[in-house]
């Protein structure tokens, strides 16, 4: 590592932030683009499972709320891609890498949704897990990324309220509705526990070393468990992990998440990975003429 890069690294590790116009080490720029691109991809791919349920929402109010939520997610994708574009990767290239399977997106968006119970669990718990990662980006060493995270976290906190409200309506409804929520929780628990990644020590995580992230994977997972398991229990739901308990020192114990499943899913082998990518690719290709027409104008 040359002296300039060492100086840069020491600066960000002391909590310093840099701007798009500052000199950035190439490795830092590459890591930033990869991280930010995956974040943007996740926002965009996360729309597809929820999209189906806008069309099926059981009341006008729920339909409006879910449309607004999903609209926020697309807006986040747009903001996030713009930060990556400024770092040097064009949007068209990011979308092409997404649909070709070269770029990744979060594990939770590779799974199917079966019922309205999934809609509630996604908006409540998947968004809760995501906001924990995103709040840790408020201190990101790359200032433009940290800045957009303020708006994103603010909006995500509304999504969690929306999700909790969907869940609450079902939990105070009929037995059949309560069962839908429990079944959805059973389906999502595994992917939720994998969401923050394997418990690699944070100083060995390059994203932490460069202070792109400001916390380690296990810290994020503990924060999720601490914030949400008590709420899940309070609603009368059962978490499908017999080993889950809060230890005396406040550290949660849990069954080892299936890291092989995580690896397989994020490399495009999840139950809906290929179907969703094909769906996106179909419309990207079908409407290429529109983008061409806009560019020609």
């Amino acid at each position: 590592m040359d002296a300039r890069t060492e100086e840069f690294l020491a600066y960000v590790q002391e909590g310093g932030q840099v701007e798009a116009t500052d000199w950035l080490p190439e490795e830092y720029r590459r890591k930033l683009i990869k991280f930010i691109e995956m974040h943007g991809n996740s926002e965009l791919m996360g729309v597809l499972p929820e999209r189906e349920w806008i069309l099926k929402a059981p009341t006008l109010q729920r339909k409006l709320a879910l449309t607004a939520k999903v609209q926020d997610e697309v807006g986040h994708a747009q903001l996030i891609y713009r930060v990556a574009e400024d770092l040097g990767k064009p949007r068209e290239a990011m979308l092409a890498d997404l649909v070709s399977g070269k770029a990744k997106f979060h594990n939770v968006f590779h799974y199917p949704t079966h019922t309205w119970g999934d809609v509630g669990v996604i908006a409540w718990l998947v968004d809760a897990a995501a906001i924990i990662s995103q709040k840790a980006l408020l201190k990101c060493s790359y200032a433009p990324y940290a800045r957009i995270m303020k708006k994103i976290c603010w909006e995500e906190s509304f999504h969690i309220l929306h999700g909790r409200d969907v869940i609450l309506a079902m939990m105070t409804g009929t037995d059949a509705q309560r069962l839908l929520v429990q079944e959805a929780l059973d389906r999502w628990w595994g992917p939720l526990m994998q969401f923050h990644g394997n418990p690699i020590p944070r100083d060995e995580d390059p994203m932490y070393v460069w202070r792109i992230k400001s916390q380690g994977n296990e810290e994020a997972r503990q924060q999720f468990l601490d914030g949400y398991v008590p709420q899940i229990w309070e609603l009368g739901l059962t978490v499908p992990d017999p080993n889950l308990r809060r230890g005396d020192e406040g550290v949660w114990a849990y069954s080892e998440p299936d890291w092989d499943e995580l690896k397989s899913v994020v490399t495009g082998h999840g139950p809906r990975s290929q179907e969703r990518l094909a769906f996106r690719a179909r419309f990207l290709e079908q409407e290429q003429w529109v983008r061409d027409a806009l560019l020609a104008a």
């Binding site: 006008l60 409006l64 449309t67 949007r91 419309f283 409407e287 529109v290």
Partner: peptide, 28 residues
């Protein structure tokens, strides 16, 4: 709303979600 998530550009995706919300709000 069928365009949500798959519109030709992200900007249009957001626009169509807005329009859909307005139309459904009018319906209500």
């Amino acid at each position: 709303s069928e365009w949500t998530g798959i519109a030709p550009t992200l900007e249009e995706d957001v626009a169509f979600s807005s329009i859909a919300q307005n139309e459904i709000g009018h319906a209500r």
